[in-house]
Nucleic acid binder design. Structure first.
Lengths: 237, 237
DNA sequence: CAGTGGTCTAGACCACTGA
DNA sequence: CAGTGGTCTAGACCACTGA
């Protein structure tokens, strides 16, 4: 038996809930009943059910029992592909070309700049992502120098700023906003497309603990970039 | 002490990893050392570390010990807002207008249709999402009638097809693809915009267990719809 | 107030794997 | 082969909450 018992119990109930055999609001057996059914101790049963509860598949209420949860339809796991890797996977060469680089204090009337730099300095970067020499995305990035002092000396064309940060900031929290828009004229010129052409816009703020690290706005040519998200309790089990 | 001890241990190490005090590849104390430090049993320590391992913050290797994991930069939690609720939150009225409805076998040369219906019948729906009477999105949907027999009799203007399915299919797995594109002419006419205007395109396939349920392609007017994703180990703890 | 889940203990045996 | 984590037991006390 390579599979632990708690995992078998968890998978049993996941399957019944996924298949609809157990519908939302249905009551599961009590821990006592499951102990008898699986011939194991209460800790083992409890561990299986705790995992399902953490995944949002069931709700546990004292005295009342354990119930199938209503599906949470609002959260998915989003794969954020590495742009450079995605380009290379298509057999193209990826390059990042820095268009502009400036270290300075934040402008008080720019909320993003104040958010990133607070009272310190920020690094403002504009650059192009190229696939086989053709621009496919433009990014505008702000980095807090106090949060990431090493960035000032980094060669950000050898490794793109996003990759450099990921390699040097050990863990991050981030918030991403995804939208579509017509390409503004200045970006369109840099990308070599018509102003107003459809672009996928990804805006992201990243923290290290409570400290802001970077804010970035990336515009991708339509069809150059897809975001893929998967959803389902299986992904958490 | 309202907070369980295993949760305190988990939060301690999460904090140290997030703050950078513990860097990737750093070794954590052994379970024996943590038992002494927190004055608790091995199960309690193990539970805290198992939760961190499940969240991807640490790697545990037998004989070698427990180590801070390299950040997984590729997965985020994506909030999929309910379009109707989002419109109402802006103080507008949401309505779904059915443009076309047809029950028929799949066309053999349409991969999406064969995927949804297999050998059975499918329901093909086209409709508009309206905010205060103005179109803001168009959707093209295929539903497998064998998987969801009740849908044939449903009033899909009173409740939009997406909402109806969520209420009647107890749990789902889904795969979503997000991109930007210029609006095709036929969709543009229905939306009352110029052909080629930028749109956010969301394509989703949904399963119930192993059975395909629905395939939908939605085009949103730019600025009418944002997708927001959050990322971070806190979300899983 | 009785039944349920939440937590925790002090052990045990085992599997894996690096020294 | 010794140290580490993975699993499991058979209990215990407690907190919550619906009947």
């Amino acid at each position: 038996m390579s599979e632990p018992l708690h995992e078998r119990i968890r998978a049993d109930f996941e399957k019944r809930i996924l298949s609809g055999a157990l519908a939302p609001a249905d009551r599961l057996p009590t821990e006592q009943e499951l102990m008898r059914h699986y011939g194991c101790s209460r800790m083992t049963v409890s561990r299986a059910l705790s995992t399902l509860a953490a995944a949002g598949l069931i709700d546990r209420r004292k005295k009342a029992g354990t119930f199938v949860a209503r599906p949470r339809v609002h959260s998915m796991v989003l794969d954020v592909p590495d742009l450079a890797a995605q380009i290379r996977a298509r057999g193209q060469a990826h390059r990042f070309r820095l268009l502009h680089r400036e270290a300075r204090p934040p402008r008080a009337d720019h909320a993003d700049e104040v958010w990133v730099a607070r009272e310190g300095q920020l690094l403002a970067l504009d650059g192009l992502h190229l696939a086989d020499g053709d621009p496919i995305a433009i990014e505008h990035r702000l980095i807090g120098i106090d949060a990431v002092p090493g960035v000032v000396a980094a060669d950000l064309e050898a490794v793109s700023p996003g990759s450099w940060l990921l390699q040097h900031i050990p863990w991050t929290e981030a918030e991403t906003r995804i939208s579509a828009l017509g390409c503004p004229p200045a970006d369109a010129r840099a990308l070599g497309i018509a102003a107003g052409a459809p672009c996928l816009c990804v805006e992201r703020r990243t923290w290290r603990g409570a400290e802001p690290v970077t804010q970035v706005r990336q515009l991708f040519l339509a069809h150059a970039y897809d975001l893929v998200a998967r959803f389902g309790p299986t992904s958490s089990g």
